[in-house]
């Protein structure tokens, strides 16, 4: 009966292998933040050999759900919790806290061949809600607008919807991630999409143009790469990037959160195309 005992041993190893490790931090959530989080974790590891940080994406909504279900220690989220989620944490007797570790600007991208450089937020709302269906009235292109958005579990999707006060056009394509949006815009002259500004700076800019955004009709056009204006909070689509965690875990994960505030951490945040946070809540 050698087989069953070996089998049991393997089973025990499999079950116990991934639980109860006090020195691991599991981070899940926003796809916008995942690249930055990976870089931070890589820089964090040499000085904290005993702590293993694992990071995965999946969208802000997924990260928050994982925090609620206990499968993540930190939920990266590019939006704040909505009232339903707050209620559920309360129902489950979970005290949670948040930490703003960086800020992000959302870039609206179009094909390089489109003769538009700036858009007002009003026009943007009309385009994304599907009211304005053709480029012909505002540009050189006589083609229908092709919207490349994110799926509804994306914090970016929810943020834009909220900020513009619209429902997205049902014709908007829902892509799997920022990279897929950029790939689609590159080859589609009639496309418009939105991605975290960090993605455009890191990726190649070839074939892609980032729009300057005017808030209202008489504001000034601001680029999502304008460090100074974003530091003053003037870009319309900038937002804090949150990390939510359970209060009881604070001690366990604080070394990582502290690291994000160090000069090294802030340097990484800047070099990846994000903006440092100025406050903690």
């Amino acid at each position: 009966m050698k087989f069953p005992s070996t089998f049991l041993l393997v089973l025990v190893a499999l079950i116990s292998g991934c639980s109860g490790n006090k020195h691991s931090i599991k981070i899940k959530g926003s796809d916008t933040e995942v690249n930055l989080a990976v870089q931070l974790a890589e820089a964090f590891h040499p000085t904290h050999k005993g702590i293993f940080v694992s990071i995965s994406g999946g969208g802000s909504g997924l990260g928050i759900a994982s925090l609620l279900n206990g499968t993540a220690d930190i939920a990266n989220s590019s939006r704040s919790l909505n009232s339903k989620e707050r209620e559920m944490f309360r129902d489950n007797d979970m005290d949670i806290d948040s930490f703003v570790f960086a800020q992000d600007a959302i870039a609206f991208v179009v094909s390089e061949s489109l003769l538009i450089d700036t858009l007002t937020t009003d026009l943007l709302a009309q385009i994304l809600s599907g009211e304005l269906i053709s480029w012909s009235s505002i540009s050189n292109l006589d083609q229908p607008v092709n919207i490349y958005g994110r799926q509804s579990n994306s914090g970016t999707h929810a943020f834009i919807k909220h900020k513009l006060g619209i429902e997205f056009s049902p014709h908007a394509k829902q892509m799997n991630g920022n990279a897929q949006i950029l790939e689609a815009i590159k080859v589609d002259p009639s496309g418009i999409g939105y991605v975290g500004a960090g993605y455009v700076q890191n990726g190649s800019m070839e074939g892609i143009k980032v729009l300057w955004i005017k808030a209202g009709s008489n504001g000034i056009a601001i680029s999502p790469f304008d460090q100074e204006r974003i530091a003053r909070g003037e870009y319309y689509f900038q937002r804090p990037l949150f990390q939510y965690f359970r209060k009881k875990d604070r001690e366990r994960i604080s070394s990582f959160l502290e690291f994000e505030k160090t000069d090294k951490g802030v340097g990484l945040i800047k070099s990846s195309g994000y903006y440092p946070a100025h406050y903690e809540r």
Partner: peptide
């Protein structure tokens, strides 16, 4: 493409039942 509008032909983006469940299950509150 997962666009949720009713498609008018084979060249429109569509969103099937299975894809809808897969996309939305991850984030939906219980």
């Amino acid at each position: 493409g997962n666009a949720s509008a009713i498609p008018c032909g084979f060249l429109d983006s569509v969103r099937t039942i299975t894809a809808t469940i897969a996309i939305e299950m991850g984030e939906v509150p219980y």
